Amino acid sequence: MNNTNLIGLDNHGAEQLSAQLNDLLANYQILYMNVRGFHWNIKGADFFELHTKFEEIYTLLLEKVDEIAERVLTLGHQPLHAFSDYLQLSEIHEAVQVSSGSQGIDLLLDGYRVLIRKQRAILEAAAALGDEGTASLMSDYLSQQEKESWMLAAYRGRSA
């Protein structure tokens, strides 16, 4: 009996990793919608600057949503696709009626903290499984989001 999936990874390990990726996917989807709302509803003196920045960020988040879902498929499992599943699983909560740029940035930073923590755990699990594809994705995401967090914190006048 073959205990590996199509790409040669242990079936049980790939299943566990897919569950972690689906959890991550749920958090990405909620953060994506939050940032989309910040983009739409921003008001105040920072409107032009933050409207553009939030669009840049939600575009990157959406790309990652697709990559994570495709990685789950590559591992031989099904990505979650019901918004009710995302709401149930996500540690990041819906942000409703946020029009303050500073509040939007603070919520985005909180969201990045969640993603970074989860991605580090997935990176470790992927490395233990010998899954370089997932590890590489997580490494890339971490690098980008750690820098983005530092920059957003600096914009808010805080240190990282």
Results as ranks from 00 to 15, higher is better:
residue 144 Q to V: 12
residue 40 W to N: 09
residue 68 I to F: 05
residue 100 S to L: 02
residue 26 A to T: 06
residue 108 L to F: 12
residue 131 D to G: 09
residue 150 W to S: 03
residue 155 Y to N: 01
residue 48 F to N: 13
residue 18 S to K: 04
residue 75 L to D: 07
residue 36 R to T: 06
residue 66 D to V: 12
residue 71 R to E: 09
residue 46 D to I: 05
residue 21 L to V: 08
residue 94 E to D: 06
residue 139 S to Q: 15
residue 132 E to H: 15
residue 26 A to N: 03
residue 12 H to N: 14
residue 151 M to R: 03
residue 2 N to T: 15
residue 157 G to C: 07
residue 128 A to S: 14
residue 54 F to G: 03
residue 64 K to E: 14
residue 101 G to A: 01
residue 121 A to K: 11
residue 80 L to C: 03
residue 65 V to S: 09
residue 13 G to K: 09
residue 73 L to I: 15
residue 144 Q to C: 07
residue 44 G to Y: 10
residue 103 Q to A: 04
residue 159 S to R: 08
residue 95 A to G: 03
residue 29 Q to D: 08
residue 29 Q to I: 13
residue 35 V to K: 04
residue 54 F to A: 06
residue 28 Y to T: 02
residue 48 F to K: 10
residue 158 R to H: 11
residue 124 E to F: 08
residue 74 T to N: 13
residue 7 I to T: 14
residue 13 G to W: 07
residue 30 I to D: 03
residue 101 G to Y: 01
residue 45 A to T: 07
residue 76 G to P: 05
residue 73 L to E: 12
residue 83 F to P: 00
residue 13 G to D: 05
residue 150 W to D: 09
residue 63 E to C: 04
residue 152 L to C: 03
residue 51 H to M: 08
residue 141 Y to N: 09
residue 3 N to Y: 11
residue 50 L to Y: 10
residue 144 Q to G: 10
residue 92 I to V: 13
residue 77 H to A: 10
residue 129 L to K: 06
residue 51 H to F: 11
residue 36 R to A: 00
residue 147 K to R: 11
residue 69 A to E: 07
